[in-house]
Amino acid sequence: MTTATSTTASVTTPTGIDPRGPRFGAAITVIALAVALLAGSSLLGTAVIAWQTVVFGLGAFVGLGAQPYGVLYRKVVRPRLGPPAELEDPAPPRFAQLVGFLFAVVGLISYLLGATLVGQVAIGLALAAAFLNAAFNFCLGCEIYLLARRLRA
């Protein structure tokens, strides 16, 4: 685990990120969203979706370096792992944070207004994306970015 030698000098941008970071973050996000979904618009559910909205917002608007789960990964998890096989462009996971943020905002506002079911559906959609990211390395930007551009222009 610690003797991973870099045999393949693959094409990597110097500013790339460890691709395991966003997947680790997605796994924690799945848990947070599941709690928010199960707890509904109770104090617990509202607090958890508010927290997750802030997390997504930091990742989307400040950067992945400021995203709390990414910080946790770099400080605690990554030192225990070998170096990544290759680095990745941060733009795709950052886009995913933005999409997550939009769903989380809808979830949070709905919970605050007492529209529990609407909130739960929005949170469920965000959960689906986070779960696909964590379990299948699903690329949300690949699926919806071009579709959105096609609709807009």
Partner: peptide
């Protein structure tokens, strides 16, 4: 709680099926 649980189960099953298909 039960609504949330129902949504959670549906989401996880549907996402897993979609992920495997892909």
């Amino acid at each position: 709680m039960t609504t949330g649980l129902g949504i959670l189960v549906v989401v996880l099953i549907a996402a897993t099926a979609f992920g495997l298909y892909r």
